[in-house]
Design a protein around this nucleic acid. Structure first.
Lengths: 222, 222
DNA sequence: TGAATAGTGTCTTTCAGACAATATGCC
DNA sequence: GGCATATTGTCTGAAAGACACTATTCA
């Protein structure tokens, strides 16, 4: 690797974030309405320039906070898109991140200083700016694959949850029903969740046991 | 994403490539001896700045050609490293690539205009410049995982090969012997290879059937 | 006691892994 | 025949998937 020269023409570097959350029976993603050209008025992924003093992850977290008022998310790097013509103005390389949030503890409307922010169903996405549609498709694919062999669903749930809660998140992401008995057998055999001893109450039915994830780090279970 | 301004301070962007190849019973990686500060005299990964008109993949292929005289490699994006202090001079973000080459059809010594190039055993790596050691460790981990559930080993072999050839590549990468019968059963059941009808000759022993990969694209087999 | 959700066990099939004998070609 | 490598099948244990009934709480 040669020495960087200050006069070397440089591309710009951004981060763009796919923030997924499951609401009711829908996999949703955070989008921002652009109020600047190009693609003014179009929806786009939250994101922005990487500042010189911050890491890529820090940039992603900062943008999520600024544009979506989101804190406390699971975050992992997805892919870096660098086609020379992906931005019509100039060369922009974007490092994309997959983020997951628990929809029950966060309201998108309370943030958003960069434009209108909205949670949009992944089933009927509007036309997106730049190559963001391709990025979203790639992220959904990764999320679907990874939920099958890791504890990544922890990003979508509060600290305490029932096995039915967990199963519903899986079903929404995979887009198909799962057998309750087989699901529980598999989840419990991996040991990624442990019972907290508490039980749900209030419903006119049998209370459910609460569980929590044993580790807050990503664990690959096969 | 805001509008990029030309006066916005930008990081530099490089690509660095992990070119693996299996020689005899050894997993080797291409390294370049730096002839410029910093880390002058140290070994480092091949790589360099991304030019404004080329994609990230094109940059990686160009650097491989320039620094290692390598053509015709399998290439996949690995990870983007962006810690603000990973380069002591200035902010440099590097997009890393995993590349695989068939050692039987390529000689590292014939290339290398950027400094001395060498294939180095991953078992006894020298001290590497920057954060390149961390990158190498990450790449080996990814390669080991991926060889178990994909046809990625195709990058390490010529067009025609025997099942014993293929098994040896797996054994070197995993660092442990594999049962021949189970290996063949599994490989053949995935259907990623098909017999060419030809047989090896010349050895003082029973000839082996040649196979080829059915697809030259990456296939995930489970 | 009816409504609603929680929780559980068996059977079958599939796949991974341990394990050894026969086949073929060349000298 | 002797040597060197190629090729093949069985058994066992584990895990995945199909499938239905009982348990608990509250109104």
């Amino acid at each position: 690797m040669p020495t960087p020269k200050n006069d070397f023409p440089k591309p710009s570097v951004t981060v763009d974030i796919l923030l997924f959350t499951v609401v009711e029976n829908d996999l949703k993603i955070l989008l921002i309405k652009r109020n600047l050209a190009p693609f003014k008025g179009s929806w786009a992924l939250p994101g922005g320039f990487v500042l010189l003093h911050e890491s890529l992850e820090e940039a992603a977290l900062r943008e999520l906070k600024e544009e979506g008022n989101v804190d406390n998310v699971y975050l992992e790097q997805l892919f870096t898109f660098g086609d020379p013509r992906r931005d019509p103005r100039s060369r922009v390389i974007t490092v994309t991140y997959l983020a997951l949030a628990d929809s029950s503890t966060w309201d998108v409307r309370s943030g958003g200083d960069a434009g209108e922010a909205s949670l949009c169903s992944t089933k009927k996405l509007p036309t997106l700016a730049f190559d963001h549609r391709k990025i979203v498709d790639y992220g959904i694919e990764r999320l679907r694959a990874k939920i099958g062999y890791s504890n990544i669903a922890m990003g979508l749930l509060p600290d305490e949850f029932t096995l039915t809660d967990l199963q519903k998140k899986h079903e929404v992401i995979l887009g198909q029903p799962i057998d309750k008995r087989n699901f529980r057998k598999k989840i419990l055999s991996t040991g990624i969740v442990i019972p907290t001893g508490k039980k749900s109450d209030g419903g006119a039915h049998r209370p459910a046991a609460f569980y929590k994830f044993k580790s807050k780090k990503l664990i690959i279970t096969d």
